[in-house]
Amino acid sequence: MSIPRSNYDPRRVCLNPFPNFTLGKHRRTVGIYLAGGLFALANWTFIDAAVLSAHAHSPYGEPDVPPPVHVGFADWVPGICSLLGMLVINLIDKDRVRGEEGFGDARAVWRARLFLFIGFALMAGGLAGSVAVLILKYVLHHYTEQYTYYGYANVSQNVALMLSAIVLWISQSVNSEYEYNLSI
């Protein structure tokens, strides 16, 4: 695939520029609240599973049989990785990743992009880890739906954290509604 010379910029890393959304006057505020809602929903679902696991009772009619599985440390690790990845991604200055705002040091742009990659790798690792925990700990042992919910809550937490990070990144990348265009 060749790029026409008129559109080619040797400083660009990606073929497609960052998205420029027009979602109305309060687009940035709506995006930030949506990301916060996704973040809260993500953590609520996993904490709900952890609380249910802590208060799980033996099956009815069998008082001597303990619950077969509980949420343990292995269940918490993927969510912690995704949370760290979300923090890393949203701590990066968006202009530095784009190479704008007069950042003359090319190494600074490269380091910002590497830092962004590490953040996305942490989030992808968290999602992959939650799927692995779901399959290895809950699905392969053929537990009832009551217990497999713990694994599904873990996966949904990581998916919602990824979506929250993406929505927050995009909403912080759009122009603010408080920008003024002053010209003399």
Rank of each mutant, 00 (worst) to 15 (best):
L161D: 00
I3S: 07
A74Q: 06
I184W: 09
V51G: 02
Q157N: 12
M1I: 06
F103T: 13
N43W: 06
V133N: 04
L134Y: 12
W76S: 07
E100T: 15
R12Y: 03
I166M: 12
T22E: 11
L87W: 14
G85R: 05
V133G: 00
P66G: 10
N16R: 12
R98M: 07
W44F: 14
Y147R: 03
N7E: 15
G104T: 13
S58A: 15
Y60S: 09
Y33H: 11
H142G: 05
S164Y: 03
V65Q: 14
L168P: 00
L52W: 03
Y149K: 12
L34G: 01
A56N: 08
H70T: 13
L163S: 06
P66F: 06
E100P: 00
S156D: 01
V97C: 05
E179K: 07
A121M: 12
R111E: 07
V155G: 02
D48R: 10
R11C: 01
F21I: 07
Y178R: 10
Y8H: 15
E100I: 13
W110L: 11
G72I: 09
Q157A: 04
V77T: 04
L91I: 01
Y149R: 15
L38Q: 03
S130Q: 02
P78T: 05
P4W: 09
A35W: 02
P19S: 07
L127W: 02
L161V: 08
F39P: 00
R5E: 15
L23Y: 03
W44C: 06
Y8Q: 11
C14H: 09
V97F: 03
A50S: 13
Y150S: 08
K94I: 10
V65L: 13
Y138H: 05
I32D: 06
S53P: 03
S82T: 11
D48L: 07
G104W: 05
P10N: 14
L84S: 08
V88T: 14
A128T: 11
S183V: 08
F117N: 08
